[in-house]
Amino acid sequence: MQQLSTTRATALLLAVVMVTAGCGSGALRSVGSPTDQRPATETETATRMPSTTAAGAVPNAEPAGPDATPSISSTSTTTPTVAAVPGSGVEDIDLLLAGLDDALAELDQLLNQAAAAMAAEKGEIIP
């Protein structure tokens, strides 16, 4: 039973790390561009996480810090808690928001430029 809890904690930790890392960085990218494929792939990886029972099955997972949740092979008898997430996971969540905020700022700038272009119609008046 403890081993099952440990597995869940590990899965949770890795899910947070992988999920947020997949969405947190990079500027707005166009549909179909080469770099656009990466988040989708990483999302798929994260989506597959529930059926993963071994940490080693997750490619490119960030190395766990000293406070990381015990791995599946651990013999630790401590009860894992949800709060036992290393700081790097939280930073990745922040990256998720920062990435969205950067993209939104870029979008706002383009919306303003479009509004300014609409207002410039008076330039067509014949002098």
């Binding site: 947020t20 969405c23 549909v31 994260a46 990435g99 993209a103 979008l107 479009a114 119609e121």
Partner: peptide, 28 residues
């Protein structure tokens, strides 16, 4: 206006894709 509207619309579409990916990740 046409150029700027298209650029902004495509940027909005790309932003929506990022948000969609975020919904999937957050849902997970």
């Amino acid at each position: 206006p046409k150029v700027h509207l298209v650029l902004a619309a495509d940027a909005a579409g790309a932003f929506a894709e990022r948000l969609q990916a975020a919904t999937e990740s957050l849902g997970d």
